[in-house]
Computed example of a mutant assay.
Amino acid sequence: MRLAAYNVENLFDRAKAMNLESWDEGRPILAAFARLNGLLGEVSYTAAARRQMAKLMIELGLEKSDTGPFVVLRRNRGGLLVRPRTGGIEITAGGRADWVGSLELRDEPIDENAMRNTARVLVDLEADVVGVVEAENRPVLRDFNRLIIPAIDGVPFRHVMVIDGNDDRGIDVGLLCREGFPIETMRSHVDDVDGDGDPIFSRDCPEYTVLTRKKNRLIVLVNHFKSKGFGRPEESNARRKAQAARVREIYKTLDPRGDAFVAVIGDLNDTPDSDPLSPLVRGSKLKDAFTHPAFDDGGFPGTYGPCSAANKIDYLFLSPALFAKVTAGGVLRKGMWPGVRPKKWDVYETLQDKKDAASDHAAIWVDLDI
């Protein structure tokens, strides 16, 4: 069987702030959105918090209307704010219980050619089980599988599953499985919390048990750790390390003797030599598939962007028993922008411009004799 992981970077719609030409343009917008959402969720609003909320709303283009260029403030009931005729914003609510509503990122459609290139990657992977990162939700992943994959003459997956996670932007992780690889059980870790009562996982760490054609049970934990994109680096690093440590603890309960078939896969947003990933890389029995003698990285050590060693952020971590069953492995980069001087790798004929890229991430896979 073939196991794979792929960050599809959304399928039908993507936050407008994440679709800008440069990540440097979108990062401050997402940072302001995250900060404002955090403040709006506070039980009580201090005077300082109200001033900061008003400032952030103006930065996000909400001074005149609840609809800004990149975000929408939905106010269903209660009083949150007033907009004086003289300008500005005044927060009138005393806390989260005083109003009902939400702050949401505005979406826009993904380029159709890029969407089809994403489908081409999933078809060319020829994987039986794929951990999917950055899918909007299950209906979107289901419709992509049912409509777009057949449109490029691919065979849809038999099983499609996504468990909604903690990300306010609607970025989730899920699983696609072929006929003969049913999902037997699912277990969410979306409510796992740290010592302060805050969610550990940025999305979720869903735990799927898949039955193989040889009647073996494969346990797959799909992850998308905290990004480096915005927020204070020390806080982001600490969050990723806490996530890695929690995954290690979950793994220990699943494979106490080292003889179970367990895989921790997905976009972990850091390199193998980093401190945040040390609980998994150096603090557990899990083995990185890239280190297997049968794994071919295609001449590039990374999985993201230019695919240098500093861009190795996507993983297939395997339990010792599963690592021993690897017969081959590799990286599929045909849907990634290859650069221009010179092109680093071969791509689809339909990928003529950076906007045509299926994803900034490569798809990674291993063949397993289970």
Rank of each mutant, 00 (worst) to 15 (best):
A245I: 06
G88V: 11
C177F: 05
D314N: 06
N311C: 11
N113E: 12
L62K: 08
E108R: 12
D288P: 00
F323G: 10
G94T: 14
D314F: 06
V130R: 03
D168Q: 11
G61C: 07
L3P: 05
V72I: 13
L175H: 05
Q352S: 11
G79H: 13
R187V: 10
R138C: 08
A328G: 12
D369R: 14
G131M: 08
L62C: 08
E104S: 14
D191Q: 13
L218Q: 05
P272G: 09
E21K: 15
G195K: 08
D194W: 02
N237K: 13
G197H: 04
A242C: 12
S308D: 15
D367F: 00
R77G: 00
Y315T: 09
T86D: 10
G195E: 10
F33V: 04
V220L: 10
Y6C: 02
H292F: 01
R158L: 11
L125I: 05
S319M: 09
H189M: 06
L11G: 04
A245V: 07
G174S: 03
P69M: 07
V193R: 15
E235F: 12
E184K: 14
L368T: 10
F70E: 01
P272C: 08
L318A: 07
V326C: 12
G329W: 05
V123M: 00
F261N: 13
Q52I: 04
S278R: 13
E249F: 00
R51V: 09
G229C: 04
N7G: 04
V100F: 11
D164I: 09
L368F: 01
A17F: 10
